[in-house]
Design a protein around this nucleic acid. Structure first.
Lengths: 191, 191
DNA sequence: ACCATTCTTGACATGATTGTCAATCATGAC
DNA sequence: GTCATGATTGACAATCATGTCAAGAATGGT
């Protein structure tokens, strides 16, 4: 190598993720990314092409972390406990920081200005994979459910997590979100 | 009156609502509003002050329609039927148009760039009132629930409607959303 | 008819953001 | 040490959006 990149790519992407998480793909500017990473705008363009390319990398990092944490939380023998762990995890995830950063996936899904197929695809991928994780947990439980019913129920759980993300944005506190999640789990799994 | 306004305010607000619904508060520009309404940008500024003022009027019109439709759908003797009607209504509401417009309340809640207290307050108001409507329906049913439990459950329903709105944005079809809603109602109310 | 009032219109100033580019700089290979 | 390579930098052009304003137009009251 001759012309050597002056910055650590992983660090830059991690920092970019933080910026995107706080501001969203649309509202985060290259200026913001440059300021946060300490890398000049021009260098970012040179290294990645455009903002969306940076976002895709950051988002991949995010979903990797998120799905791993989800899998971890769901890894409990008792299905109901697993689900409670899971909801605890995602609620902490979205109410963390000050001000809270919310859920990046949900924010991205709602960003109307994003027509990019790539981005949309990634959002669908996360939701899909999350549905599969939850489905696995549900079917591992005391099973008197048909496979199709399990799948449908898994999607209901995913949908509810999205609802929590919106409620967080609307101003509900971590405590309120946890209460709703608990009520939901009890109602669905049978209190 | 001497200098007479050249446009019908109700029509302008209705058209503005359509624009905001399709593009969101942030992405809809005064240019868009001017083009859609046929009223010059300058006239809009003169009449309303700024974009947010127009949005607030349009949003009030929207929530009025929405809550009325919700109340109507929920007005059924059988609680489960009422809830199914309600979900049918909101799903049609958010998947209507081509491309579908989604849920304006949810989009607005997620719009990070909006720090305006006024707008945030309206979003909370809609969700609050919706929660009350659903709470009334739940408590009207065969009641062996404590009031606190009813309130909690009503919020779970509201949260789920928000989840549906996100799923719609993520690309799920009307049919898929209806299936999820049906599964949800069955699971919570006891299939 | 006249006039005061208010709306309308197009132009303007401003600021933000994107993306490009040529000049410069640093470095590792030889 | 020289040099080719590729990163860095700051400037630049092009859009796009907001909000303001002065001049012009239309109208109802007198």
């Amino acid at each position: 190598m001759v012309g050597v990149r002056q910055f650590n790519e992983d660090e830059v992407i991690a920092t970019a993720l933080d910026v995107f998480w706080r501001k969203g793909l649309h509202d985060a500017t290259m200026q913001d990314l440059a300021a946060a990473t300490g890398v000049q705008r021009g260098s970012l363009y040179n290294a990645y092409g455009d903002k969306e390319a940076i976002f895709l990398r950051a988002f991949d990092q995010y979903t990797g972390q998120f799905l791993e944490a989800a899998g971890h939380a769901l890894a409990h023998a008792d299905t109901t406990t697993a689900l409670r762990n899971f909801f605890d995890m995602i609620i902490v995830n979205m109410t963390d920081g000050s001000p809270a950063r919310g859920c990046l996936t949900t924010r991205t899904a709602l960003d109307a200005a994003i027509s990019s197929t790539e981005v949309r695809q990634r959002v669908q991928d996360v939701l899909d994979r999350l549905e599969q994780l939850i489905g696995k947990t549900l079917s591992a439980g005391p099973g008197r459910r048909r496979a199709a019913d399990t799948n449908r129920l898994a999607r209901v759980f995913v949908t509810f997590t999205r609802g929590l993300a919106v409620m967080e944005r609307a101003g509900y506190s971590r405590k309120q979100l946890k209460e709703s999640a608990a009520t939901f789990v009890d109602a669905v799994m049978g209190a």
